[in-house]
Write a protein that binds this DNA or RNA. Structure first.
Lengths: 354, 354
DNA sequence: CTGAAAGCGCTTACAG
DNA sequence: CTGAAAGCGCTTACAG
């Protein structure tokens, strides 16, 4: 341990002394509260600037009698399909654990991905409550947009994770660059299969909302194969039960005998792997998304070759920490934080911590 | 904002009241300082336990007049070969920025990787200074071991990054699992080249110390190819100038015409890529390690196919934060934190943040 | 062995 | 519009 050095111990006290006012007045200026004459305000402000005053966060949080309330709003986990969402929650909890010491609490709310009303209901409720910051995984575009518009009006900062709502003045977006993840998949396919074989792209989703995201990935893949002029066939499967998926697969496989790689644009890749397993097709390269339970099992069994993942846990963690940085540390926050495009295989998944 | 609730506001004051002693006495017990009779000590301890007392870290750090001094000891960056070490330093600085508010300072020291005396000198010096925690990238095994033994004696917690010193009671190790990264390389090679072609393993290093690490990666690769009985040839290159490397490469390439993949066990892979570029060999799969400047350029130009990376920046960041967790937050720290085995390609490297 | 008191750098009523 | 004072939950001399 080392004694604190005489490293500019300037605080409100010194400012008050120099400005010839009471500490309370300095405090008012610092927090831009009313009740200070323009004259003394200017004086204090110039001293603050001159001294390059940095408030002591420890003292601030200690003296302040109120705790910051952050709110997170994510899809709830109800089935294997929504299993993905356990990860961001884990990250959020981790962040909470670290910062609760500093007078921050995190309230977690969930909505039903299959029921946009459930989202609207919670959002409406939240707007009535006192909130200091919001973390949102925007799924229902319109509803999310109108929700965060309302937040904006109340001056509540909000952060998006997993997918962005462009043109909205969020504090930041933390999540994947969808286009480039598809592009990456293209390269992997190119590495691992013969150059003239066909690539099958599968969008498996009931939700039209979701579709927009899936299409970005597809575009990325197609962009990669544009130069090589490799044949790509795309199938949209909107009936997402296993049976329907398999039926569609059987159809397209029969139609195109030269398919050597399958790219599934979301986590439903394990459904495809089950089909390949059943039909004994082992000569196909299979790439999909997300570190879900089912997917990792398929990866281990060798039916899925690559999973592209974007650290959903880290997204939750960083989302909360971005709010903490802004609200507590008052540090600047990057507007966009694209997650790395992680390539997960049978051999490295044990070391992957989402 | 929300008022703090009546959530067990029990602190030293309440403990003192219940024990019928002064706060100072409670403080002595909490910090295990001498000068308290066994009787009152026991009494206070039982009350602490009963109340499940958690000290308020904000108040602790605010009231405490001393700042915690962390020290980091890493190889210095002096050439392209040691370029790698800029990354951990960046992570360390980031961590420092975040925690300096809490009365923690980080002093960074560097030693010369080519001069073990430089390490010994700094280590010796450090042992005389007041230090609260150490982050070490152990390179010279013996010297590092005796250094951390001395730290142990002084009860200074230490953290290893990048490579471990087994059997030492470190607070934690944060870095790669070398064996499995080699194993992962094996799989990538298998995916991308024909099954019966030969694989060349290259250990390019002057330092014998380093060799131990490289061998672990080689073992991993060999383990992968054990089942497939794929031919592997290994060459150790101890003259690490470009010319010597190329000479050796020319020799082995001539000797084995069926080599289709080259695995370089460290960051010197860009030297190999230069050779391949010169000689116009574009049919070889080239895999190596680390996100160095030169390597990324080669990756971009398509001469290196895969880089395996283990987030050196994150290692530095997490190393410091582990010390912070232990020393400030007093939270438990995981003994081992293996970094993910990241697969970096031309297509995803832009999203990789070390 | 023990305690009373000042202080860390802020915030927050309250009084004027 | 402004200030004096108490208090946040600890630590730290200092006195006895």
């Amino acid at each position: 341990m080392k004694k604190k050095e005489a490293e500019q111990p300037l605080g409100v006290k010194e400012i008050a002394r120099r400005a010839n006012v009471a500490i309370a007045t300095v405090d008012r200026v610092i927090h831009n509260r009313p009740g200070v004459s323009q004259k003394t305000k200017s004086k204090i402000e110039s001293i603050i600037k001159e001294l390059n005053y940095q408030p002591n966060i420890l003292a601030q949080r200690l003296a302040s009698r109120n705790v910051l309330r952050l709110v997170t709003l994510l899809p709830e986990v109800s089935s294997a399909e929504t299993d993905f969402w356990t990860l961001p929650v884990a990250g959020i909890k981790k962040a909470e654990e670290e910062i609760k010491q500093f007078g921050v609490k995190v309230d977690k709310y969930f909505f039903d991905l299959n029921d946009r009303k459930s989202f609207v209901k919670i959002a409406k409720q939240l707007l009535k409550e006192p909130i200091d910051g919001i973390l949102l995984a925007p799924s229902f575009i319109e509803e999310s947009t109108s929700f965060i518009r309302a937040c904006s009006k109340q001056n509540i900062p909000y952060v998006f994770i997993n997918s962005d709502l462009p043109n909205q003045e969020s504090l930041c977006y933390i999540g994947p660059d969808l286009f480039h993840s598809g592009y990456q998949a293209g390269q992997l396919i190119n590495f691992c299969t013969t150059r003239n074989s066909r690539v099958l792209v599968l969008n498996i989703s009931r939700e039209i909302e979701d579709h927009h995201h899936l299409l970005r990935k597809e575009e990325g893949l197609r962009a990669y194969f544009k130069e090589t002029k490799r044949p790509v066939v795309k199938v949209d499967i909107r009936q997402t039960d296993q049976h329907s998926i398999e039926k569609e697969l059987a159809r397209v496989m029969k139609q195109y005998a030269d398919i050597r790689a399958v790219f599934v644009t979301n986590s439903r890749v394990s459904a495809v792997s089950r089909y390949l397993e059943k039909t004994g097709k082992h000569d196909l390269l299979l790439i999909g998304y997300d570190f879900t339970h089912d997917n990792v099992i398929s990866l281990d069994q060798g039916h899925i070759d690559f999973l592209i993942c974007q650290q959903p846990q880290e997204q939750g963690y960083r989302g909360v920490m971005a709010l903490y940085q802004r609200l507590v540390l008052k540090m600047p926050v990057d507007k966009t934080y694209f997650m790395p495009i992680d390539i997960i295989t049978k051999e490295n998944h044990a070391f992957y911590r989402n």
